[in-house]
Design a binder for these strands. Structure first.
Lengths: 188, 188, 188, 188
DNA sequence: TATGAATGAGCATTCATTCAT
DNA sequence: CATGAATGAATGCTCATTCAT
């Protein structure tokens, strides 16, 4: 319970104040425990932030995993649409947190945060491509997965994180169409 | 001269030590002036970082501007290829600085750094699309520019910043082909 | 048993990590009990350290007591030699602990640690002098005991604690000769 | 001036509160400057304490150096008396500080504080012995210097630091006689 | 009796910023 | 204009001690 409260408090303070202002004393106070307790469960501020990243990543990946499981047997266009939808849904879990995590966290050691967040997606999507390779042109699957995942991630991330207020639901629908078209025609 | 030295020193320290370790005293020392002088020319550390962003953006944008000027009269496929090449070239100007700027700088206030870096690109590319709209399907030009610019930026950024060491020159050539195909077929 | 384990753990951690790093939690862990139990038997960290000093002093004093009992009936030169040997033996019981105790422990209140360690020796040696006063010149016995005990303690302490590695067994034998001569001729 | 004030404040706080309670903030406050200034002149608390040790050692050694220069041409007994007097005078410079420095400072790295404080004395006294070796029996000069310096240091240290209040001036005179006798007869 | 989670004051250190010279 | 000593709030983290179970 204390651990959860600390992770949650860290996430909220990261969002509200940014990484630099997220002091361990403030986090502990917000979590309703003392600094001492914080350090009983996390050896350093970095470990706490890592736990936040981990928790957020797991939530994100669950959405992506579910989507790719659903997509496994669908033809390519529908599969891509499912994935694009999932990407948007994932970014909407906690867009502000996602943004802070993506932009503001000093690297905590290899591998890159970005890769941590997208590495599994890449692998899962590549697996889909392998299973469906007869539906599209011959291409290096690793490269294709990189192009598709990077593009979908960038489009949905930018749309959700930077333009959510200015984009209507219809606009999002259109964006989904366009992103799907981008990927499908690329693969054909 | 002092101003230039300060901006350059800030950029180098940002790259070498990261944002958190880039203290104004260290920057001043590296620039060969006193902290006092630093504050004579820049009202705050943030202003200094903003100046670095500004200078880097200008260098980046000059590459992009030149490329789009070159591309203005080219047919779409060649134009897109020129733009993709320019994006890679731009990211290679100072990839480490670009990365620090993109990832590690606490937001300095609206508008987003990302937008600062890509906002003009978006406008320039949209202008190209307007001038060449008969070469491709009917589509919302703003949306199309967003999709294209965001995708190209993400692919080239990720490739240059995160995978430069592991990618051969030929691999970059293939990536350019793929990125070009992605955009061209999307627009067709 | 718990008390012994705690004292032993404290001694070992004092030696290994020094006073500053010897936290009560670490001591309790090393002793295989909880901090709570530590505070059930010792009211404070200071009390624990005092117990370590006490135990070490008792071990030391046993050696000294035995030596002076042996020396009681010996003529002066042999008696002094026995005492010097005992002093070296005593310092060799746990030289590292002795050093930490002597140098690094913040005073825990009157009486001085040094006096705790040497006070009884002083009294015992004075008693020997009283019993053998006809063997040497007339002198204030308290003063003579102070001079002898302080010198023997300093010589053996410095030799064992600071120069053990660099001193061969023969060198120690010579040192014993010299220390004995120092005291014997002083008393004559 | 700031540097001197800091060293002096450190010395006074070391004496008053002991090493553990000598916080850098308290030291700075006592010195009448801010912590920031403290760290402008000393890279760490340890460096500050080292400076205190250094200053105190220099004061001590000046007394000892002067005494041994005076003693150089004197016959042994007078020379030893001069040295014993100097040892007492040296310990009286700042007995409380000497005690804290000798007993309470966590080792700051090789060489031992004790050796730092007494190493030069040892060398100087050995030089005296070399120059006067025909006045006493044949003996290993290094060993003799060790025995003499260690004994004198221990006797004067213990007397001044631990028994100053309880010892009258006459008692000190007697102690000087005894210490001189101890050394002189040892060397004869 | 034993436990160990919780406490929170305290510490060493950093750094953006000011201002007298 | 330039200097750089001075400031002091703020930070990450430790540890002796308590107390509900």
């Amino acid at each position: 319970m204390t651990v959860d409260a600390l992770i949650e408090a860290t996430a909220r303070i990261l969002v509200r104040d940014g990484f630099d202002k997220a002091s361990t004393n403030r986090i502990a106070e917000k979590a309703g425990v003392s600094v001492g307790s914080l350090y009983q469960y996390f050896p350093s501020k970095e470990a706490l932030v890592t736990a936040v990243i981990e928790r957020h990543s797991q939530e994100l990946m669950q959405v992506v995993r579910d989507a790719l499981a659903d997509a496994a047997t669908l033809p390519m266009e529908q599969a891509v649409r499912v994935l694009v939808n999932a990407a948007i849904e994932a970014h909407r879990i906690d867009p502000e947190l996602h943004r802070v995590l993506a932009e503001q966290i000093p690297r905590t050691g290899r591998p890159e945060n970005t890769e941590v967040l997208s590495g599994e997606t890449y692998a899962l999507f590549r697996a889909y491509l392998e299973a469906h390779c007869e539906e599209f042109r011959a291409v290096d699957l690793g490269l294709a997965a990189f192009v598709c995942v990077t593009s979908i991630e960038a489009l949905t991330h930018t749309a959700v994180v930077h333009h959510s207020e200015s984009l209507s639901n219809e606009a999002f629908e259109v964006l989904i169409d366009e992103a799907t078209r981008l990927i499908v025609r690329y693969l054909q």
